[in-house]
């Protein structure tokens, strides 16, 4: 309690009560020393308050167990048949892994030249293994870039994903085509460990 009173006092007293209080003090001692004291004490108090505030803020950040549980995961792609997709959970979020057919890849490439709200070539949304583009595999975060709902797979006007919350349509490459979403579906950090295995994170 004392500290905030003290601060209020310093802010307010200055102007009015200086005549009363401080002049007395000035008379009874070196004015510079008093001002330095007040300033130093105030500064030390502010630093202390900051030191107390930091742990209180920091404690809300992800804790050590949460961070450890969010370590990279390996995903075996072999069980996912052509034209199929799976949803897996990583760091609490859905991740779509879609095994595209040759026709779907072709469709996606054709649309590179279409009017895309968030222009990006299909080739830029796939990853390579040993120099070879693994364009059968689309790996995206399963949260609509509008407000985070989970879009439904194999639906919408572009046979990609359709978000039922606010009507965003994505194509099979996860690019936004129509609706309020501002960006293509985000791609998590991932790499191919072999032709049929990826590591996410």
């Amino acid at each position: 309690m004392a500290r905030w009173e003290f601060r209020i006092r310093r802010g307010k007293k200055r102007k009015r009560d200086v005549a009363d209080h401080s002049t007395n003090a000035m008379q009874s001692g070196d004015p510079n020393r008093r001002d330095f004291l007040l300033l130093a004490t105030g500064a030390a108090g502010v630093v202390a308050a900051g030191g107390v505030a930091w742990p209180l803020i920091s404690q809300m950040s992800p804790d050590a167990s949460t961070i450890a549980a969010g370590a990279p995961v390996e995903v075996d792609l072999a069980p996912i048949g052509e034209g199929k997709a799976i949803t897996l959970k990583w760091r609490g979020k859905p991740i779509f892994v879609r095994h595209r057919t040759a026709k779907e890849i072709e469709d996606a490439r054709k649309d590179d030249s279409a009017a895309l709200p968030d222009k990006q070539a299909d080739a830029a949304r796939v990853r390579a293994f040993e120099g070879k583009a693994q364009d059968k595999w689309i790996v995206v975060y399963g949260n609509c870039t509008h407000l985070g709902c989970v879009p439904v797979g194999f639906s919408g006007e572009y046979n990609g994903w359709y978000c039922p919350c606010h009507g965003s349509h994505y194509d099979n490459s996860g690019r936004i085509r129509k609706g309020p979403a501002p960006r293509n579906l985000d791609i998590p950090e991932f790499a191919f460990l072999s032709a049929s295995k990826i590591r996410i994170g």
Binding site: A25, S28, L37, L38, A40, T41, A44, G45, A48
Partner: peptide, 20 residues
């Protein structure tokens, strides 16, 4: 260490103020 510094400063300030 910080509390000792703060206590020292406050002690001097207190003496100053009460000496009025």
């Amino acid at each position: 260490l910080w509390l000792i510094v703060l206590a020292g400063l406050l002690f001097m300030l207190k003496k100053r103020i009460w000496s009025r």
